[in-house]
Amino acid sequence: MASIASQVILHPTVSKSLKYGSTTVGRDKAYRALQYFARFYAWYLLSRGERDLSARWNSLKSHLAIARKLLRLGKPMEHLQAAIRACLSTANPVEQVATIGRQLGYFGYLTLDAVVWANTIRFVTLKPETATKVTTFSNRFWLTGVLFSIANGVAKNSRLALETKKLQHGSNEIDLSEKAGRETRLSAVSAARNQTRQQLLIDMLDLWIPATNTGLTNLNDGVLGAFGLITSVLGAHQQWAAVNGK
């Protein structure tokens, strides 16, 4: 019995899960997936008339949202640093501008989100109308960041597609070392392109959440919960690969 327990507890998957959960990003992705599942499931239960059970899942969604705001308290400075690094880089001009816009958008969003969190836990007290304005501006910054991220993804994907085409149709009259180098570069570009496409998918689904929060669209919690769950799982997969390798 002890042998079976040790095999389960010490299983490589359990060890990788603990390693994943030890990172702040890993925990945030897990909490986000559960939060948006709860949002979807609460909507589903309410549509079936199960109000009490729906309220339980809605409460879980709300408390996970508050917990995630606490986890992200240091994130605005990370995005501000990334914006400054992008200003100093020599990247493609379109990608550079889009990256700066994305980072500044997320900086504004997460900074105001921290104010929302402080008001929610009554650490600071804002007038109801002020709290509403802060939340609205926070979501506008979020929407701006996502739009710039989409623009960056489109520009980057176009550049990588052009580079892939050049590598695939390059001259065949080259020595073996140059051919190996071209194949290595092609593999790297292909991996970068796949990652860019996945981020584009995440952004295009996430876009609807702040768009709805700001009143630009009117999607229900079922749709937004499903979108959020999908992007959370995709983001969690990226973080898992970063922590544990593919």
Score class of each variant (00 low, 15 high):
Ala42Trp: 01
Ala30Pro: 08
Ser62Ile: 08
Leu53Asn: 09
Glu50Lys: 15
Leu45Ile: 05
Gly49Trp: 11
Phe40Leu: 13
Ser59Asn: 08
Leu46Val: 05
Phe40Ala: 11
Tyr44Gly: 02
Ala33Cys: 12
Gly49Pro: 12
Glu50Met: 13
Asn58Arg: 15
Phe37Glu: 00
Arg39Trp: 11
Ala55Lys: 15
Arg48Cys: 02
Leu45Lys: 12
Arg51Gln: 05
Leu60Thr: 02
Leu53Asp: 03
Ala30Met: 14
Gly49Ala: 09
Asp28Ile: 08
Ala30Trp: 12
Leu53Trp: 13
Tyr36Ala: 06
Gln35Phe: 05
Trp43Lys: 14
Tyr41Ala: 01
Arg32Ile: 02
Asp52Gln: 14
Arg39Phe: 02
Ala33Val: 09
Phe37Gln: 01
Phe37Tyr: 09
Tyr41Ser: 03
Asp28Lys: 02
Gln35Asp: 00
Glu50Ala: 09
Leu53Gly: 00
Leu46Lys: 15
Arg48Asp: 04
Ala38Asn: 02
Ala42Ile: 06
Trp43Asp: 09
Leu46His: 12
Tyr36Cys: 08
Trp57Thr: 00
Arg51His: 05
Leu34Glu: 05
Phe37Met: 03
Phe40Gly: 10
Arg39Ser: 03
Ser54Thr: 02
Leu53Met: 09
Lys29Asn: 12
Lys61Pro: 00
Glu50Ser: 10
Glu50Asn: 10
Ala38Glu: 01
Ala38Gln: 01
Ala42Val: 04
Ser54Gly: 03
Arg56Leu: 07
Gln35Pro: 05
Ser59Val: 01
Phe37Ile: 01
Tyr36Ser: 07
Ser47Gly: 15
Asn58Phe: 09
Ser47Gln: 14
Trp57Leu: 10
Phe37Gly: 01
Leu46Trp: 11
Arg39Asn: 05
Leu53Tyr: 10
Ser59Asp: 09
Tyr41Cys: 04
Gly49Ile: 14
Arg56Asn: 03
Ala38Ser: 04
Gln35Glu: 07
Arg32Asn: 01
Ser47Asn: 14
